[in-house]
Design a protein around this nucleic acid. Sequence first.
DNA 1: CTTTGCACCTGTTGGC
DNA 2: TGCCAACAGGTGCAAA
Length: 293
Amino acid sequence: MTALQERRANFLIPLTIYATFTMPELPEVETTARGIRPHVVEKKITAVIVRDARLRWPVPKELPQHLVGNAIEHVERRAKYLLLRMPSGTLLIHLGMSGNLRILPADTPAQTHDHVDVVFADHTCLRLRDPRRFGAMLWCDGDPGAHKLLRALGPEPLGEGFDGDYLFRATRKRKVAIKQFLMNQNIVVGVGNIYASEALFLAGINPRRAADKITKVQCSRLALEIKNILHYAIAQGGTTLRDFVGSNGDTGYFQLKLNVYGKEGAPCPRCGSAIMQIRQGQRSTFYCGQCQK
DNA sequence: CTTTGCACCTGTTGGC
DNA sequence: TGCCAACAGGTGCAAA
């Protein structure tokens, strides 16, 4: 048994991974936050390894000097951003379309697309992998809420600020299709391409309908269904995470019961007619033409 | 101001 | 089998 295996066996360091979701919408980012939180809070950062700084924006050259010597105080999520707060500022992480974070023994060999390690004093590290490099890792001093990328974001869908009344007011005079409206992060955050389709199915609303044609009653229903599907997905994410701790496979969405996303041609779970696929703003949308009006 | 389409990247899939 | 086009879960930005 190698020294590393021995340490693992003795649980001196975590076996591995947390949250290798490959398609991060809000529930996946929330699950990631919960997954890494117990393994990074109050950990002192001893090194930062940037193997490839070419993410959506270049990883700042000063990032290591900002981080090293600091200890992470809190892990928060705002929209699809992870906020790792420390005394002198905040590390902002966005997973883009293909990013994931894992907790690993710091000496785990890096593989392709493992771009950044944040190394802790206990010889574990937080490792960012992101094949498409649409993600971001940025430093923010001061209030992260005032950061350019965060300040215009809409309310959290699971918070008090998002309900039917809010949605009704926000949709007035907006001609864009409701599905694209829901994916606008300045209206409400965290709803991505999958959950937009799913929430509209649950609410019985046609994704092509103009936002300002949605009634007050429908807005209430839609806000409720958005909360429902996100809560459900987070709960499933938690399950997935538990099941996968100690393994090294991607978790993905296979445990999630989706009604319409990716189900073109399949029978609608409610009425049996074929699920349709259309394009809206260069994104795929799935819906039931019978149930969603 | 709202809306639209492009761009950024790599990897996978399906059709020929 | 190989090749190539199409597509993939996000989002800032320029242009209309």
